[in-house]
């Protein structure tokens, strides 16, 4: 068992919590796990990327080499595109379809590529991928803040590595009790989003 994940998004989207949940899940399964974040100026709308490495064997480097990621979990389309060189051809991508525009793009000084162009790039890297509107689903359930849990649910459907009961137990340890129920709903909703 060896799995490299790249979880990418924009500051404030909660991708760190998702990576900690996956790491704790791996620990629960008795596996080794190492991760790292590159945050830059995260609070001001910057890119945030977490690398996460899970293995039965000893892991040395916290970073996922180019072409090695088994999964790209993209909280945002352009951020998935930015890190697509990490994906291995047999791996898969799960990407939130809701975009976060860039400031320069807003100004008309830069170009935010259309969804179709980004998808074509993603498909060139891997035949297996899912584009889901996790943000919309999270808002339906009570808040965009749960986008990360919806994506986690989708991930758990795609990878048989994840067992729902154990994943729920991990979330129960990480989240405040009063928001646990709705987050478990979000997890289920994400699971169901992946056909």
């Amino acid at each position: 068992m060896k799995m490299d994940l790249v979880i990418c998004g924009v500051g404030g989207q909660g991708n760190l919590l998702a990576s900690v949940a996956i790491a704790n899940y791996a620990m629960r399964k008795g596996l080794n796990v190492i991760g790292t974040e590159t945050i830059g100026a995260a609070q001001r709308g910057g890119s945030v990327v977490s690398h996460l490495r899970i293995s039965e064997e000893k892991i040395y480097s916290p970073t996922v080499p180019a072409g090695a990621a088994d999964v790209i979990l993209g909280f945002e389309l352009v951020e998935a595109l930015r890190h697509i060189d990490r994906l291995n051809p047999g791996g898969c991508y799960i990407v939130n379809s809701e975009t976060v525009p860039t400031v320069l793009g807003n100004m008309g000084l830069d170009r935010y590529p259309p969804e179709g162009e980004i998808l074509r790039e993603l498909r060139l890297r891997s035949a297996k991928g899912y584009l889901i509107n996790a943000s919309e689903k999270a808002r339906e359930l009570g808040g965009a803040i749960m986008t990360n849990i919806v994506l986690l649910g989708a991930l758990s459907r795609v990878l048989p590595f994840f067992e729902q009961e154990d994943l729920a137990a991990v979330l129960a340890e990480l989240l405040p009790a009063k928001v646990l129920a709705v987050n478990l709903q979000a997890l289920k909703a994400g699971y169901d989003l992946v056909a």
Partner: peptide, 10 residues
């Protein structure tokens, strides 16, 4: 990637 990811300026 052939498509450039736009930068997120601070």
């Amino acid at each position: 990637a052939a498509v450039e990811a736009p930068v997120r300026t601070r």
